[in-house]
């Protein structure tokens, strides 16, 4: 249960950073926090009490003793795509800094909210 609650808290902190903060790097950190929280939530849905990792070995050959493999496969995809999305966002931030000379979104004219 604590896994669900802390995943939700991390998602909440990320959304807070995304809409309150005015610094572009802080906004990217908020995006990363939301992604981490959602990965934690998905993996903890797949966990089953008292079962082991879904990998066959000479000791564990019984498929009924393993946790759900589908959320783990989905999270694997999500982490790799998250990292590439983050590299693209960092490139955009550097370009914006070159053009406007600031990281404050209130001073970047076309992004003002």
């Amino acid at each position: 249960m604590i896994f669900y609650i802390s995943a939700l808290l991390i998602i909440g902190i990320g959304i807070y950073a995304l809409i309150i903060k005015k610094n572009l790097i802080k906004i990217i950190i908020g995006l990363d926090l939301i992604e981490t929280g959602i990965n934690l939530l998905i993996v903890s849905i797949g966990y089953v009490n008292g079962k082991t990792a879904p990998i066959f070995s000479k000791d564990v050959m019984n498929a009924s003793l393993m946790v759900d493999p589908v959320p783990q496969a989905l999270t694997l995809t999500s982490i790799v795509i998250g990292a590439s999305e983050l590299a693209l966002a960092a490139a955009f931030v550097v370009l914006l800094y070159r053009k406007y000379g600031t990281l404050d979104i209130r001073k970047i004219r076309s992004l003002r909210w």
Partner: peptide, 26 residues
């Protein structure tokens, strides 16, 4: 949580490469 594959990719990609990208951006 018994997810060694996910742990491995989070440690290699989420902690190491992401940090490098952030530090270069900063």
């Amino acid at each position: 949580l018994q997810a060694p594959d996910v742990a491995m990719s989070e440690a290699a990609i989420g902690a190491a490469l992401t940090m490098a990208i952030y530090i270069v951006a900063v």
